[in-house]
């Protein structure tokens, strides 16, 4: 297929300076853009490093020994950093660290990214209102960013990432501080995102299985599994120490199988397997 429509990582190795072992080992991916990709792994599996590479933070901002290639939709952070950076939106693990610190209000914080791109004032105010509504921050627009709760802060971080309408969205555990209803609303919002490639690191396996087109499992710096949620969670290795989704556990206990002798991982599939058995 066309290079412009794919995410390609070839023999990617990354080692931070001063470290003895590589954080990413020989990562190979060739997959279409426009998907929601869930990245799953434990501490030190390399998932946060992978996010940094995908966002171009490595090697453009943090230096590291890097070999292999990375292009997404034909672009690489190494070729034209400003253009690449403009096409991505990034949510870091620590939402408070993402704030500019130079904004008096949530609205100013949101406008920051657009001002940087030289957007006109009336477009800015429209987009700020729109994104705040999507993330449920309309009532907070005039508040100081520091006064937000953890969950609100994460939604603000997401809002600053999506306000520039990036084609690539990279989010490192964006719901960790949200309450269950907030998290549910976030994952529902994620299904409404169009024409965007989304990389999301999360430990919410149940939710990932509902929204992700593809799951990547990381373990000790290697990409040990990739494919559809159903495929990946039906072939877990105990070594990776990754749990199965609740749907899978329920179906396994009840022996509800789909055709092809696999267990369902998402609600729709569960219904199908249930109907086939009962």
């Amino acid at each position: 297929m066309d290079e412009d429509k794919r995410i390609v990582l070839e023999n990617l190795n990354v080692r931070y300076s001063g470290m003895e072992t590589s954080q990413l080992k020989n990562i190979n991916i060739n997959t279409p853009i426009g998907q929601i990709i869930g990245i799953v792994g434990n501490s030190h599996s390399g998932k946060s490093t992978l996010c940094r590479v995908l966002a171009g933070i490595i090697p453009k901002i943090i230096s590291a020994t890097i070999s292999g290639t990375y292009t997404i939709a034909g672009r690489s952070p190494m070729d034209d950093w400003t253009a690449f950076n403009t096409s991505t939106g990034v949510v870091l693990q620590n939402p408070a660290g993402q704030l500019s610190g130079l904004a008096d209000t949530v609205a100013d914080e949101l406008a920051f990214d657009l001002i940087n791109q030289g957007t006109s004032a009336d477009v800015i105010s429209k987009r700020v209102a729109n994104v705040a509504a999507q993330m449920g921050l309309t009532d907070q627009l005039r508040q100081k960013p520091e006064s937000l709760s953890g969950g609100q802060m994460q939604r603000l971080a997401i809002a600053t990432a999506i306000i520039t309408q990036p084609q690539i969205l990279i989010m490192d555990d964006p719901t960790s501080e949200m309450d269950p209803v907030g998290r549910q609303q976030f994952f529902h919002w994620l299904t409404t995102v169009k024409d965007t490639t989304v990389f999301i690191v999360s430990s919410e396996i149940d939710d990932l299985c509902e929204v992700a087109d593809s799951i990547w499992i990381m373990s000790e710096g290697e990409l040990v599994s990739q494919g559809s949620p159903q495929d990946v969670f039906n072939h877990l290795s105990p070594e990776w120490q990754i749990p199965t989704p609740t749907v899978y556990q329920m179906a396994e206990k009840m022996n509800w199988r789909l055709t092809g002798d696999v267990f369902p991982v998402a609600a729709e599939e569960l219904k199908e397997a249930f109907d086939a058995t009962n």
């Binding site: 966002a55 933070i57 453009k60 901002i61 943090i62 400003t82 950076n85 403009t86 991505t88 990034v90 870091l92 620590n94 660290g97 993402q98 704030l99 500019s100 610190g101 406008a111 920051f112 990214d113 001002i115 940087n116 791109q117 030289g118 957007t119 004032a121 800015i124 600053t160 520039t164």
Partner: peptide, 24 residues
């Protein structure tokens, strides 16, 4: 450490983009 995180995030958010136009 916090300043470093902030600096990374500001670069990602494009604060040194040559197109930046301050609002009145």
């Amino acid at each position: 450490d916090q300043s470093m995180t902030r600096s990374i995030s500001l670069q990602l958010r494009g604060f040194d983009n040559p197109k930046r136009k301050a609002l009145k």
